[in-house]
C-alpha cells in the first residue's frame, strides 16, 4: 500500500524557534491517523507545514507519491484540504455560506457548482435552508459543518483536521465526530487529525503519534493505547490525565 503522506526529518523554524525537530511520519492511504500532544508540542505546526502555511526549514514531505517543493500548486489543494479548530474564526464574516462554498469552485474553474453546493450541504446535514446565511446566523456546530462542506467540495482524498471539535460543546462534538466518520467511510478519505484529547483520537483514529516539544514521543495503535500498552512515561501521564481528577 502506498503512503498518502510521508514525512521525513521535518524541521520547522519560526524566528530561531524550532517548532518541529526532525519528525518522521507515514500515513497510509485510507487510514485515519492521530497526532496527540499538549500546547507547544508542534502537532498543529505539522499540519500547517504540510499545507504550506508553516515554513519548512528542512526535511521532505511527500503527498500521494509526489514530493512537495517550496510552494503548493492548485492540484495539491484538490487533494489535500483542512478543517480549522475555531469555527468562529474560519468563516469569512461578510460572506454567505453560498459565497464561501462557491469560492473554491470558482478558483478551480469547476462548472457544476450549483449541484455540488447542494450536495455538499446535504452531505454535512445542513440542507438548502442554510445556503444563504451569514456566519453569525449559525451556531458553532453549524459553522463547523460549513467548514467541513467547504473542505469536501473540491473532493480531496486527504483531510487534515486541526482540533475540529475542541471549541464545541460535548453534545455537538459527538455530532461532528460522527459526521466526520461518515464522510470518511463514504468518500474513503485519509484523515490526519490533531487533538489534545486522547479519547477523541482513540475514537477516531487507527494509529497515532504522541508528540512533545516538537518531537515524536512514540507511535502507537489505538488498541495499544486502549490496553495501556505504552512505553513512555509521558504517554502514561496523558492517559492518566484523561481519566479525570483523582483525589490524592
Amino acid at each position: 500500500m502506498t503512503a498518502a503522506i510521508a514525512i521525513d526529518g521535518l524541521e520547522v523554524v519560526f524566528d530561531r524557534f524550532r517548532a518541529l525537530k526532525g519528525v518522521n511520519l507515514e500515513v497510509r492511504e485510507g487510514e485515519s491517523y492521530g497526532l496527540v500532544g499538549e500546547s507547544g508540542s508542534g502537532k498543529s505546526t505539522l499540519l500547517r507545514a504540510i499545507t504550506g502555511l508553516a515554513p519548512v526549514a528542512s526535511g521532505a514531505i511527500t503527498v500521494n507519491g509526489k514530493a512537495l517543493g517550496k510552494t503548493r500548486d492548485k492540484a495539491f489543494y484538490r487533494d489535500v484540504q483542512m478543517v480549522f479548530q475555531d469555527p468562529y474564526g474560519s468563516l469569512h464574516p461578510r460572506q454567505t455560506v453560498d459565497r464561501l462554498l462557491q469560492e473554491p469552485l470558482a478558483i478551480h474553474g469547476i462548472s457544476d457548482g450549483e449541484k455540488r453546493i447542494e450536495r455538499a450541504l446535504d452531505e454535512v446535514g445542513l440542507g438548502k435552508g442554510f445556503r444563504f446565511r451569514y456566519a453569525h446566523q449559525l451556531s458553532g456546530g453549524q459553522r463547523q459543518r460549513v467548514a467541513i462542506a467547504r473542505a469536501l467540495i473540491l473532493e480531496p482524498s486527504i483531510l487534515l483536521l486541526d482540533e475540529p471539535t475542541s471549541a464545541l460543546d460535548a453534545s455537538v462534538q459527538a455530532e461532528v465526530l460522527n459526521l466526520l466518520e461518515e464522510v470518511r467511510r463514504r468518500r474513503k478519505l485519509t484523515f490526519l487529525m490533531v487533538s489534545h484529547d486522547l479519547a477523541i483520537i482513540t475514537h477516531m483514529c487507527e494509529r497515532l503519534m504522541v508528540m512533545q516539544d516538537g518531537e515524536a514521543v512514540e507511535t502507537l495503535t489505538a488498541s495499544q493505547l486502549i490496553g495501556h500498552r505504552v512505553s513512555e512515561d509521558y504517554t502514561r501521564n496523558l492517559l492518566r490525565a484523561s481519566e479525570g481528577f483523582v483525589r490524592v
Partner: peptide, 13 residues
Amino acid sequence: NSDYIKAVQLMGA
C-alpha cells in the same frame, strides 16, 4: 492571519 483568510489560501487562491 485569520483562519478564514488561511482557508482561502488553502483553496489555492
